[in-house]
């Protein structure tokens, strides 16, 4: 069903957004492939074959409220997000762009802080930001600031988010829900858990090392729509089932209680420093070890489930009592129940 106007849910990474992309973008933008992975594949980026290599190209516009949140700010998010999009395609990120759209009246001090954060992430991950653009819009034509970063990377073999095979293991590099729930709690004015903070971080080095093992079949970063959305996308694109075990999914205590209070499922909120890898059976211990080496505090990489031949296109959750239910792709951005 095609709607007349764009609603907030259209941008929330769920089924509504998928509908919009199919009907308004893919149906109209038909010149959409450069010979490699094109727009229609709806992957984290597109590819351009170049001799025996592939250039990987991606872009993302970043908006976040609040601009500064526990664990980071919009600048850190904008650089990490694009680095991660390239990395989950299997590419070594080469360079980024930075386009700023700023509202009239925005504080220069805040802007400096945001740009410094961008530089810090760029230096730590060895991905330079080599070109950019800056626009200022009149007051109220925009809320604060929007940052677009595009990124280019290179790889011998792009990794896609499909091609799952029966028996493959699903591995997650740490706890989920931290980014989404820390931002939501912060917005709602809840201060019940001081240790609740965003997991935003660049993952290129971790992913590179995992790829070098040769055991990574597919991967994806569970950003908008969370783990629930990511797994559903992987299952439906590969036409395989995914079976995950509730007890094995790492969720921090603070995230769980914030989720309970706000009525939000941690599986459905964004992560900004997490990757789900589909690993060829037998490689999972090696991958977990690498992930452990990249862990800061409070992070537990885990094998959370496996690819199955039954229930094609579906994600099945085995609960702590052994019951089974489906994990649905969320329809809109989760809304806390109190507002």
């Amino acid at each position: 069903m095609k709607e007349d106007i764009i609603k907030m849910e259209h941008g929330a990474g769920g089924e509504l957004m998928e509908g919009l992309i199919n009907s308004s973008i893919l149906d109209n933008l038909r010149n959409n492939s450069a010979g490699g992975i094109g727009l229609e594949e709806l992957d984290d980026g597109g590819t351009i074959p170049l001799g025996d290599r592939h250039l990987v190209f991606t872009t993302d516009s970043h908006v976040v409220k609040p601009l500064f949140f526990p664990g980071g700010n919009i600048g850190k998010l904008a650089v990490s997000g694009t680095i991660n999009d390239l990395s989950v395609m299997g590419a070594k990120p080469l360079a980024l762009t930075c386009s700023l759209v700023i509202e009239e009246g925005f504080s220069v001090e805040k802007l400096d802080e945001i740009i410094s954060s961008m530089n810090e992430v760029s230096e730590n991950s060895d991905v330079p930001i080599i070109t950019g653009d800056t626009k200022v819009l009149a007051k109220e034509e925009l809320d604060d600031v929007v940052i677009n970063t595009a990124g280019i990377g290179i790889t011998k073999q792009p990794i896609s988010d499909c091609n799952l095979k029966e028996g493959d293991k699903l591995v997650l590099n740490g706890s989920i829900g931290d980014h989404g729930l820390s931002i939501m709690s912060f917005r709602e004015g809840f201060t019940f858990e001081s240790n609740l903070e965003s997991d935003v971080q660049p993952l290129n080095k971790l992913i590179r090392e995992c790829l070098d093992t040769g055991g990574v079949r597919a991967m994806k970063d569970p950003t908008r729509g969370g783990l629930a959305n990511t797994l559903n996308e992987m299952a439906s694109k590969s036409d395989k089932g995914i079976l995950i075990e509730e007890e094995k999914i790492p969720i921090n205590k603070g995230v769980r209680s914030a989720g309970d209070i706000l009525g939000i499922d941690p599986l459905e909120v964004a992560n900004e420093g997490k990757v789900v890898m589909v690993i060829e059976n037998g490689f999972e211990d090696e991958i977990i070890e690498i992930m452990n080496n990249y862990c800061s505090n409070n992070c537990e990489p885990a094998v959370i489930g496996e690819v199955i031949d039954e229930e094609k296109g579906n994600v099945v959750l085995k609960t702590e009592v052994g019951g089974k239910r489906y994990v649905e792709a969320p329809v809109g951005d989760p809304v806390p129940r109190v507002c």
Binding site: G241, L243, D265, I308, E310, E311, N314, V316, L317, K324, R325, Y326, V327, E328
Partner: peptide, 12 residues
């Protein structure tokens, strides 16, 4: 049902 999976029967 909307939040936790609408179809209670499955084939595994």
């Amino acid at each position: 049902w909307f939040r936790y999976g609408r179809r209670p029967k499955m084939d595994i």
